[in-house]
Design a protein around this nucleic acid. Structure first.
Lengths: 207, 207
DNA sequence: GTCTATACGAGGATAGAC
DNA sequence: GTCTATCCTCGTATAGAC
């Protein structure tokens, strides 16, 4: 059971993600929904308002998908670090790659250079949040003696996160065009293995 | 001395990079150039044609900026690995961050999900090319006994490249909005140091 | 809450005079 | 190579009937 308002929302998400905000007209949205242009304005103030609501939804969902410190502390002790990262990756992809969220991520990426809200979301959700999360995880792992203590958690987090971001980025492009992503998935696992190895065998810290 | 055709080109690059292809009208381009709409069609077949020419130019420039294997082989021997990467980063940024190239990079990123040509350029120039280059460099370093031989050059290249791509990505967003990029620059150096350390002190390879 | 009707500026593009 | 004039469609948005 989906209301007209929801239909507009979903249709807009789909179209914006495929053609960009300015590439989609109100006419096109309403044509796809099956209502007249004028009816749309009963649900949303204007075209911009739809985008705002989409971004609101995205932020809510991303926050929901972020694990708490407590959850992490408990979870980390149950499995080896490398496996923890693999599971985390799978969970992240599961939460983050529902069609809806993937589409909105794309909208964020598309509008990031023009729309301030999109920029803030990109910086916060894709960079800062991931970074903080990874720092926290490496700290917990060190405290629990699961990995060596010679490496700065911040450095490890930087390496883990940005590498993963580069990979995610390529993954997004490929999956957007239905190109095979197997190689990237393998590279992600290779990346996790690499960082886990280093975290385990301390290789000497700052001079 | 700049012809009308060049003015159109430069204006289009500037506007497309700021508003996206579909966010810019032919009227807006010609208004900025100082000619009538109809005059534009004496120089370019249509709006799409301008974008195509912009992409052509970009690929030519990126190819020019790619060092040859011979150049690398000679250069690598003259300085320590970490310094080599730092120099390489500076050179890359110098070549790649002229206002024009930076703008076109942004256009590529903006259109990547909608325009097949932009997608191909992104994959080729941002991922494949960088990756191949890094593999080549690590191989030369190993052959020249400048780094340990226990790590697979491909793995090192993967780690170096994707980490750098994530960082470049954040750098692009920040610099686009005139936000401070000092932190990212530091992170880039930290990344180089990290990878160089690992390449130097072999930490044990595949099992 | 949806429709018809309507407004009007902006969109890409062409024909033909100069 | 540039201009004026013109085409017709698409763009967002509103007023008011049902």
């Amino acid at each position: 059971m989906s209301t007209t308002k929801q239909k507009i929302f979903n249709t807009a998400v789909d179209l914006f993600s495929r053609k960009g905000f300015s590439g989609v007209s109100v006419r096109e949205i309403t044509r796809n929904v099956g209502i007249k242009e004028s009816s749309l304005y009963n649900h949303y103030k204007n075209k911009d308002d739809i985008l705002t609501k989409i971004f609101d939804y995205f932020q809510t969902q991303m926050q929901k998908a972020t694990p708490t410190k407590q959850y992490l502390q408990e979870k980390i002790k149950t499995i080896p670090p490398e496996q923890f990262w693999e599971t985390g990756l799978v969970n992240f992809q599961k939460a983050t790659q529902t069609p809806q969220i993937q589409k909105i991520s794309k909208i964020v990426l598309l509008e990031m250079f023009q729309n301030q809200r999109a920029r803030d979301i990109a910086l916060e959700e894709f960079f800062t949040r991931q970074q903080k999360l990874a720092v926290m995880i490496f700290e917990i792992m060190q405290e629990s003696n699961l990995i060596g203590k010679d490496n700065d958690p911040k450095v490890l987090a930087l390496e883990y996160t940005y590498g993963m971001l580069g990979l995610q980025f390529e993954y997004n492009i490929l999956s957007n065009w239905n190109l095979p992503t197997k190689t990237i998935q393998e590279k992600m696992l290779s990346h996790i293995k690499f960082i886990s190895e280093i975290a385990k065998n301390s290789i000497g810290g700052e001079n």
